[in-house]
């Protein structure tokens, strides 16, 4: 964390330029950087609240670059740290995973000038023991001080020990943001995460198994000044339609998802 803080402060001191602001932490809008424009984003996501002791922090440093009109690319350095006690014996295990990601985003329509803004987003991630792809469709609309955005994401993940069948995350994220004053916006985000997996049935047929289906939602706050912006969203788990943890009575998923997620983003261009 200290490393990320130092990087953030150093980059902030260099910038005097306007940034491409993200008013929502989980929901992307359709905007892309102008050609030649560069931006650094620092992400931090905290997760907590399972059936056992569980704390997870994901940090990402992203460098975005405007390649052409309508097209931007980005590379990420990813740092994940998980402290957990799944056996409940009081012995906390620590797992650290580092990886890299490469993203492309293609803007199809503008959220102000066109009836609906739209973009396609593709991201690939490689880390020590898994490969992930993320394909996202983005639609959004800005009218006056309001922004509404919807993301639909398909995210297959291949783990080393389970190469044949990827686990697939289907995600829908809906966000609304309202600009209260210049440089200050508040909003709400709602996310549905549906985890499925291809498996072979006892009869030898392959079929999709539904693992979990969980809704998170909560408020977001966004601030911006010249060359700098920051956004934070607090997302408690609202309920689970499908649970893998046997917590159906409580309508919660506490094995594959957490009671609470908090994501903060800081961005600046240079």
């Amino acid at each position: 964390m200290r490393f990320l803080l130092v990087i953030s402060c150093a980059a902030l001191s260099l910038t005097g330029l306007a940034a491409s602001e993200r008013q929502l932490s989980y929901t992307h809008d359709s905007n892309v950087l102008a050609p030649g424009q560069k931006e650094i984003e620092v992400w931090g996501t905290f997760r907590s609240g399972r059936d056992y002791y569980y704390r997870r922090v994901d940090n990402r440093i992203e460098l975005e670059y405007g390649v052409a009109e309508h097209l931007q690319t980005a590379v990420y350095l990813n740092f994940r740290s998980v402290n957990s006690d799944p056996s409940g014996t009081g012995t906390v295990e620590t797992d650290q995973v580092n990886g890299i990601s490469w993203e492309w985003k293609w803007k199809l329509a503008d959220a102000v000038a066109d009836p609906v803004g739209a973009a396609l987003y593709l991201e690939g991630t490689a880390s020590g023991h898994e490969l992930e792809a993320e394909l996202k469709g983005i639609i959004d609309k800005r009218f006056g001080d309001e922004l509404i955005a919807l993301n639909l994401t398909v995210e297959p993940e291949w783990e080393n020990e389970r190469k044949k069948h990827p686990e697939v995350k289907l995600e829908a994220t809906l966000g609304w943001s309202h600009i209260v004053a210049k440089g200050f916006a508040v909003g709400l985000e709602l996310r549905n995460t549906h985890l499925i997996e291809r498996e072979t049935s006892s009869g030898g047929d392959e079929e999709w198994k539904h693992l979990t289906n969980v809704f998170h939602g909560g408020p977001s706050v966004h601030i911006a000044q010249n060359g700098f912006w920051a956004t934070i969203t607090v997302m408690p788990q609202l309920f689970a339609v499908q649970s893998a943890s046997g917590n159906e009575k409580k309508n919660r998923e506490r094995q594959e998802a957490e009671d609470l997620e908090v994501r903060a983003l800081i961005g600046f261009s240079f």
Binding site: A18, A19, S20, E21, N31, V32, L33, A34, P35, Q37, G66, E69, H70, D110, A111, V112, A113, R142, L147, S269
Partner: peptide, 9 residues
Amino acid sequence: NRCSGCHAL
């Protein structure tokens, strides 16, 4: 295409 890179139009 250029101005929307930094702010809403």
